[in-house]
């Protein structure tokens, strides 16, 4: 499940606590909405149902490839391209090569985790329609928002605001701009 691109006509409700947001999100999910998203200053412990991240698999694969590449570089450099005979020691020195191999594995896995996150989270993204809402700044401070996309099958101008108001939010706003 990717994060949605909001279109005009999306509804957002503002709450003042994580608990209120969690309750509202679950209630809306139960009434049949599917294109929902939450915005919160801290991670919401029991949020919406979401797919499992595939990031760990990507990190594992990139890490393994990075380790392999590190080993091959050393083998190519010291055992194949330019072997040095130092006191008859083997030019293909597995124990010595393992140290940079370990470091190469960790480095590539960490780079994969970092850049992988920004790719899946679609960041950096300087502009997003929700930023147009007056007071949305507090979503990174102390306010909790629930959003319902206009493309949701159940969403309608008559029903959705009323259902949101029933959850006792601070206010409900309709997104005018959007992509």
């Amino acid at each position: 499940m990717r994060e949605r691109t909001w279109s005009a006509g999306a509804y957002l409700a503002e709450f003042d606590s994580a608990d209120a947001l969690t309750r509202a999100a679950h209630a809306m999910e139960e009434s049949g909405y599917s294109l929902l998203e939450t915005y919160s200053p801290v991670p919401v412990a029991h949020g919406l149902r979401r797919s499992t991240s595939r990031l760990p698999i990507a990190v594992f694969i990139v890490g393994a490839l990075g380790g392999l590449a590190s080993y091959l570089i050393q083998w190519y450099a010291n055992a194949y391209s330019y072997p040095l005979d130092i006191g008859g020691r083997p030019s293909h020195a597995v124990p010595a090569f393992l140290i940079p191999t370990f470091e190469g594995t960790v480095l590539s896995a960490a780079l994969a985790a970092f850049f992988g996150f920004f790719i899946v989270a679609r960041l950096p993204q300087p502009y997003h329609p929700v930023f147009d809402i007056d007071g949305f700044e507090r979503a990174t401070v102390d306010r909790y928002w629930l959003a319902i996309d206009a493309a949701d099958d159940r969403s309608s101008p008559d029903l959705t605001p009323r259902e949101l108001h029933r959850l006792d939010p601070l206010r409900v706003v309709r997104l005018e701009g959007g992509s």
């Binding site: 990031l55 960490a110 993204q125």
Partner: peptide
């Protein structure tokens, strides 16, 4: 801040990436 807006999706993936990085930094 790179456009961070604290959506549930971002938070969930963020936690995954953060714990992964922690796990990778630990052997270091």
């Amino acid at each position: 801040a790179m456009g961070w807006r604290g959506s549930g999706f971002q938070w969930q993936r963020y936690r995954v990436a953060y714990v992964l990085l922690a796990a990778l930094a630990t052997p270091l």
